[in-house]
Simulated scan of single mutants.
Amino acid sequence: MRFADSKTLLSFFLFLSAFALPACSSDDDPKSQTPELGVISIRSQATADGQFTYSINGSFAENFDVSSAECTTRTEGACTISKCKATGGDGGLEKYLPAGTLTVSGGLLAASGVVLQPDADNFYHKVESGKAWNPGQRISVKSSGAQVPAFEVSVSTPDTLTLEAPAVPAKDQAMSIKRSTGLELRWSGAKETKYVTLFTTDATGAGNPNVSVSCTFPANANTTSIPASALNELPAGETYLFASARNQATTLVNGKSVALHARAVARSRSGEPVQRNVTLE
C-alpha cells in the first residue's frame, strides 16, 4: 500500500479491522460499538518452532471513521470493502491524539505490566518476545490520560486458531488465490474466540485507489467463504493476507468509544503464521 511509512499502515490496519466488525458486537459488552475515538490492538503470534512474540499498537483521533481516511466502503456479506485515496504524507488519516501513558497488564505479562509512551506523532507501538496470554485470560489497558481523557478497558483473550482452508504452504513457497471462485475458509480451535478476521489488501500499491477487503465471521461458524464478488474488488497481483482470532471490548471516553482488540495470528496446518504475501489470479 502506498503510505508514507509503516506507522501509518499500522494505524490504517487498526481502522479497517475495527470498521469490519458490526456495531454492537463484543465478547464482553453487548453495547459495544464500532470505535469512534481510537483502537488499541494487542497481537500474539506463534512461530512454527513454538516461539512467541506480541505487539501492542494504538492510535486515537477526533474522528476515527471512514471520512478521516478518505475512504469509501461497502459491505458484501461479512466483508467490508474499502477503497482509499493514496494521498501521500500521512495517507489522509487524522492526526493522532495523546492519551498519556498506556499500561497493559494481565495474561502472562509481568506483574508491573507493559508501559507504552506516545511517540512524536502520538502513536503507540511496542514489540516484545514471549507469550502474552493463555486463551481465556484477561488483558487490560489503562491510560493515564492527556488530550484523550483517562480510561480503562479489558478483554478476554482468544485462542490461536488453525486455518485448515485455504491451504497455506511454507513461507518460502508461493501461494495463489483465484478470485473467480471465491475463497473457502475452514478453521479449528475456537474455544475461547468470538471472531475470526481475514484481511487482504493491495500490497504493491498497483491499484488506484488502494483497496482492502476485511471479513469478520463468528468463530463458532468453523466453515464459511468469501464471495468472488468481494475478492474481485482487489486487483490481480500481489496481495497481503492476514488471518487472526479476535476478541473485542469497548469503553466510552467522553461519549466516544475506544476499542481494545486481543488478536492471535492464525496458524496454518504446518504451523506457519498466516500473515504473508499471496498472488491473486
Results as ranks from 00 to 15, higher is better:
60 F>R: 12
79 C>E: 10
190 A>W: 08
280 L>M: 15
75 T>N: 09
21 L>D: 05
234 L>K: 14
22 P>E: 12
48 A>F: 10
180 S>W: 06
179 R>T: 09
245 A>S: 13
21 L>K: 07
196 V>T: 01
170 A>M: 02
155 V>D: 11
83 K>A: 02
11 S>E: 08
253 V>S: 09
213 V>A: 15
228 A>V: 01
108 L>A: 01
26 S>K: 00
31 K>D: 14
101 T>Q: 12
150 A>I: 09
120 A>S: 14
266 A>E: 01
107 G>R: 01
189 G>F: 01
176 S>E: 11
253 V>D: 14
145 G>V: 01
76 E>D: 14
189 G>C: 02
244 S>G: 06
186 R>N: 09
176 S>W: 08
14 L>Q: 06
229 S>T: 15
207 G>H: 01
217 F>R: 03
217 F>H: 07
125 H>S: 15
134 N>F: 03
38 G>R: 04
23 A>G: 15
199 F>R: 08
81 I>G: 11
23 A>F: 08
27 D>C: 15
264 A>C: 01
241 L>E: 01
194 K>G: 11
163 L>P: 08
87 T>S: 15
250 T>L: 02
69 A>S: 12
93 L>N: 12
268 S>E: 02
88 G>L: 05
94 E>P: 10
195 Y>L: 13
118 P>Q: 14
80 T>R: 10
224 T>N: 08
36 E>D: 14
62 E>P: 09
174 A>Q: 12
180 S>F: 06
5 D>N: 14
179 R>D: 04
196 V>K: 03
15 F>E: 01
29 D>K: 06
164 E>M: 02
108 L>G: 00
22 P>M: 06
15 F>Q: 06
167 A>F: 11
169 P>C: 09
186 R>I: 11
116 L>K: 05
176 S>F: 08
17 S>L: 13
227 P>Y: 04
82 S>G: 04
188 S>H: 03
78 A>D: 02
103 T>F: 08
206 A>N: 13
178 K>Y: 07
259 A>T: 09
21 L>E: 02
27 D>N: 15
117 Q>R: 07
175 M>E: 03
281 E>N: 15
67 S>K: 14
245 A>D: 07
160 T>M: 00
134 N>H: 06
236 A>F: 00
238 E>C: 07
153 V>Q: 02
257 S>Q: 09
58 G>D: 08
83 K>F: 02
47 T>F: 10
5 D>H: 10
271 G>F: 04
153 V>W: 12
213 V>H: 12
221 A>W: 09
101 T>K: 02
156 S>G: 14
250 T>R: 08
72 T>A: 13
226 I>G: 02
225 S>K: 14
252 L>H: 11
85 K>Y: 00
247 N>D: 07
274 V>W: 07
266 A>F: 12
33 Q>V: 13
121 D>N: 14
98 P>T: 05
203 A>P: 06
259 A>W: 03
37 L>K: 03
166 P>D: 03
152 E>N: 06
151 F>S: 07
91 G>W: 11
134 N>I: 04
199 F>V: 00
167 A>Y: 05
134 N>K: 08
7 K>I: 09
254 N>E: 15
216 T>K: 06
77 G>M: 09
137 Q>W: 10
50 G>W: 11
210 N>F: 14
134 N>E: 08
25 S>V: 04
234 L>T: 13
107 G>D: 00
145 G>L: 01
79 C>Y: 12
110 A>W: 06
200 T>A: 14
8 T>L: 10
154 S>V: 00
